[in-house]
């Protein structure tokens, strides 16, 4: 499951041991395609990391804070620290491997 972040409030993700944050927007084609892929992965990896979705239109402060210049961008946080970041759509096996190698 991917939790939708509102009001620029990412405190829960920052306090989690491991969190995956998907920066996206409703008007971005690759973001829309990435959504269901990440949703599936979040179910398969439940317990290993908490997944969050950040609409950059509604949470522009967070986009600024993480220096997100392009979307979709996925950021991995461990105890609030950024450990990895990647840009763009990726097929499920590639994304799963990347997440596992960084978690």
């Amino acid at each position: 499951m991917i939790k939708v972040v509102t009001n620029n409030d990412l405190s829960e993700a920052k306090n989690a041991a491991a969190a995956v944050i998907d920066f996206n927007a409703t008007w971005c084609g690759p973001c829309k395609m990435l959504g269901p892929v990440l949703e599936k992965i979040s179910d398969e990896m439940a317990g290993q990391a908490a997944f969050y979705g950040v609409d950059v239109d509604e949470n522009s402060d967070l986009a600024e804070e993480f220096s997100v210049m392009s979307i979709p961008t996925i950021v991995i946080l461990k105890n609030g620290e950024v450990v990895a970041q990647r840009l763009g759509f990726a097929p499920e096996p590639i994304l799963t491997e990347w997440l596992k190698s960084n978690l």
Binding site: A25, W27, V56, M69, S70, I71, L87
Partner: peptide
Amino acid sequence: FLGRGVSYCATCDAALYR
């Protein structure tokens, strides 16, 4: 600099350029 100041998709990333 792709993703760090260079983008290939204006319609995707416009929101970040307010």
